[in-house]
Amino acid sequence: MAKLGDIIEQIRGVSYKPADLHDNLNNNSVILLRANNIQNGKIVIDDVVYVSKNKVSESQYLRQGDILVCTSSGSKELVGKAAFVDKDLPMVFGAFCKVVRPKIECCEYMGYFFQAPYYRNHISAASAGANINNLRNEHIADLHIPLPSFDEQRKIAAVLDKVSHLISKRRQQLDKLDEMVKARFVEMFGDPVSNPYDWNLKGLLQLGDCKNGMNFHSTDVGVNIHCLGVGDFKNLSCISDTSKLPTVSLTDIPSDEYMLKDGDIVFVRSNGNKALVGRSLVVYPATTPTTFSGFCIRFRLNSDEVKADYLLRVLKTDSIRKKMAGRGANIQNLNQKILGELQIPVPPLDLQNRFASFVEQTEKTKTTISHSLDKLETLKKALMQEYFG
C-alpha cells in the first residue's frame, strides 16, 4: 500500500480570461479541455475552447499516462471525474481541472484506480462547498493505493482493459441505434425548427401541461416512494421500469400532479452542468408509484394530436435543445416559460404511429444490449473492488 501523494505529481490547470480565448485553433492558440470533456473515463474532444499559448506552461500539456481530473464544479457529481490520457496530446486543461502525473511505470494501473469505487467514494465524501464543490491537492494526495509488483499491475490493467473494451463496444452499439432513430426522424419529419414539410405548428403547452418536481428534505420520514432524479437520466430515452429508481422518504403521499403516469415526459430543469439542462425522457411507471425531483419538470400530454414517442424525439433534436438552452449564472435553468415558447410540428398521426413502431423495435434491441452492458459494468465494479478495495 502506498500513499498517493508519494507517487504522483499534481499539476494545476490553465487560468485564463475571456480575452485570452481565440475563435479557432491557430499558431498562437491551443485546445483547452474542461470538465465536460471527461466522459466515462475517457477524453472526448467535443465542445472545446482555444486559449493563447502564452498562458500555458510546458508542464500543462497532456502527456501519455496523465490522468485528467475535474476538481471544481457547481455539480458535486462531476467533481473527481477522471480520464486516462493514453498518448501525448497537443492540448491543455482549464483551471477547474488538474492533471495527476504518475511516477510509477504502469500508469494504466493508476488510471483504473481513478475509476474505482474506493476513489469515487472518498472523493464524494471529501468534496464540499456552499455554491461550488472543490477537490484540493490533499484530497488526492492522502489517498492510499495498493501497489503490487509491476508485473501484477500490468496483469490487472490488461484484465480491466478487456472488460472496458467490451463496455465501450456496447455503448457504441447503443449510440449507433440512437443515431439511426435520429436519422429516421429527420427523414420522416424534417428538422422541427426549420419545418421543411410545413407541418401545422402548436405551442408545447397547447398540447399538455407542465409541473415542477417535488422539493423534499433528508429529515422527511413516513412514506418511501420511487423518485426520478437528474442522475437517472443519463443518455436514456425511456424508463419503462421505475421500480429500479432510487427511493426517497416523504412525510405524505404526493398529490396526483406529482405522480408520474405512463407517457409523461420529464425534463432536467436545473443543473450546474449546462449540457444536462433540457435532457428529456419518457416514463412508463405502470402501477409503480413514482414521483420526480425538484430539479425536473414533468410534461403531460392532454392532446391526441401527437404521440409521446414522436414528441420526445422532437424535444431531443439539436435545434429544439438550443431553444431550451439553460439560463443562469452558476446553475443553469429551464422553466415553463421557455417550454411554452417551443413550437411543435404536428404531422399526420399515421406517420407518427409508423415512427413509433420503428422506435419500439429499436428500443427492444437497445434493451438487450443494455442488459449486457449492465452485466459488464457490474463485473468491472466487482473487479475494481477486488483490486483496489
Rank of each mutant, 00 (worst) to 15 (best):
E138I: 09
S293H: 13
K234E: 12
C296K: 15
D88R: 06
A2P: 00
A83P: 02
P117C: 08
K323E: 14
S249H: 10
Y387H: 12
K53S: 04
D209L: 08
L383S: 04
D309L: 07
L166D: 12
A125R: 12
D191L: 03
N131G: 15
M324W: 09
E386M: 03
V69D: 01
Q115D: 04
I43N: 09
N133G: 12
I320Y: 07
F295D: 12
D198W: 03
Y50A: 04
E77Y: 13
S319L: 06
N40P: 00
S59M: 05
S372G: 12
P289C: 08
V248M: 11
K375W: 01
I45Q: 13
K337N: 07
Q60N: 04
S52M: 02
P90E: 04
K55M: 14
K169G: 03
T219L: 09
K176D: 09
N24D: 05
E105V: 00
R34Y: 05
D318V: 11
F292V: 11
D46P: 01
I31D: 02
I156Q: 01
D151Y: 02
N36W: 01
Y50F: 15
I239P: 02
K176G: 05
C296M: 14
M259S: 13
A329G: 12
N121I: 02
V282K: 14
